[in-house]
Amino acid sequence: MPAHDPAILFENVTKRYPGPHGEISAIRGISLTVRHREVFGLLGPNGAGKTTSIETLAGLRHPTEGKVLVLGFDPVGQRDEIRKHVAIQPQQAALFEQQTVAELLRVWASFYPAPDTPDAIIARMGLQDSRNVRVAKLSGGQRQRLLVGTALISRPRVLVLDEPSTGLDPNARQDLWSAIRDFRKAGGTVLLSTHSMEEAEALCDRVAILHKGAVVACGAPADLIAEHAPERELHFSIPTGGDLTLLRNRAGITQLSAHDVDGRTQVTVRTTDSDAVVGLLAGPIGARNIQIKEAGLEAVFRRLTGTDFDGNDGIRGTDDAERVGAEHVDAESVAS
């Protein structure tokens, strides 16, 4: 497809299912473009529509309305082309439990015309010490890295990852992130569904925040933070009973909370003018143990949706839709 066309296109995509009290919408009018050689993140709590979106671009679900194209191909009508160029690593998948890591990757490589080598994938995913270990004996983190390896071995042009860092320790997570960056540098495109704000900020060129099946914001992480959550969060302590009047009356402070712990008062302040507040803390207020934290993507999500990132408030209807959708997906896959 022409280089100026998007690698992935969602155009007014809606997916509805029949429910006991009428139709339920899992995704609602989503429009997104993912550029070539981009790491694009889908963020949202359980039930926000991430999995439905991924299964729609894979051709496992038929959109009720709208258009989906991946590398210019229709995922439903051109499934064979999608399989050649797109690799999807689901959050959970069945593997051959009695094969070793090397054996499993050799089997996976045999499915494709020009695969990468098992040895290269083992090195890329940091599985050298596990190459001769049976899949059934792998830890959760090792198994997760192996799942990503089975997606990479086909040398895909588009890589779709659903919660890839689940269960990984910090070192394994860094290995995974390096593999994703290397894939992008080599010309690949990544669609990443994640619950980790740290992961999204570290890897993604742009992110879309989903809520109740709709896109509520899309852009570069730094731009979204600057637009929707420009505050910084300051944590410090003062002697119990200390006067916080100067802070309470200060313009630019959007939140102030305090509680007593071990003879001191622990205070959290959210402000759009952190330099001025730090001046007050170091001077008349006499604060100690001052820590400054950027608001980050999680604050953007709270601001736009009114819920914590890992909460379920306000998303019940979409959660029901994804559950109902799971009951329909097998039939749709067989029909296509």
Rank of each mutant, 00 (worst) to 15 (best):
2 P>Y: 09
5 D>N: 05
6 P>G: 02
8 I>V: 08
9 L>I: 03
10 F>K: 02
20 P>E: 13
20 P>W: 10
21 H>S: 12
21 H>R: 12
28 R>K: 10
30 I>W: 02
33 T>D: 07
35 R>T: 00
38 E>M: 03
39 V>F: 04
40 F>H: 02
40 F>K: 01
41 G>I: 03
44 G>H: 05
45 P>V: 02
49 G>F: 03
53 S>A: 04
54 I>C: 04
57 L>P: 01
59 G>A: 00
59 G>N: 02
66 G>D: 00
72 G>H: 02
75 P>F: 00
75 P>A: 02
82 I>D: 00
92 Q>W: 14
95 L>M: 15
98 Q>N: 15
100 T>S: 14
100 T>Q: 10
103 E>Y: 15
112 Y>K: 01
116 D>M: 05
119 D>E: 13
120 A>W: 04
121 I>C: 08
121 I>V: 11
123 A>I: 09
124 R>K: 15
127 L>C: 11
129 D>V: 13
130 S>Q: 11
130 S>G: 08
133 V>T: 15
134 R>N: 15
139 S>N: 05
140 G>K: 11
141 G>N: 11
141 G>E: 09
146 L>I: 08
147 L>Y: 11
147 L>D: 12
150 T>Q: 07
154 S>D: 04
157 R>T: 02
162 D>P: 09
163 E>R: 09
163 E>Y: 06
167 G>V: 07
167 G>H: 12
168 L>Q: 09
171 N>K: 14
176 L>N: 10
179 A>T: 05
181 R>E: 08
185 K>D: 13
189 T>V: 00
189 T>Y: 00
193 S>P: 09
205 D>N: 11
208 A>P: 02
209 I>H: 01
214 A>N: 04
219 G>D: 05
223 D>I: 07
226 A>T: 12
227 E>N: 12
235 H>F: 13
247 L>P: 01
249 N>A: 12
251 A>R: 13
256 L>I: 08
259 H>N: 09
261 V>E: 15
265 T>D: 05
279 G>Q: 14
280 L>T: 07
286 G>N: 06
288 R>F: 11
295 A>Y: 04
298 E>T: 15
301 F>N: 06
305 T>R: 00
310 D>V: 14
318 T>P: 09
324 V>T: 10
326 A>V: 07
333 S>D: 14
335 A>R: 14
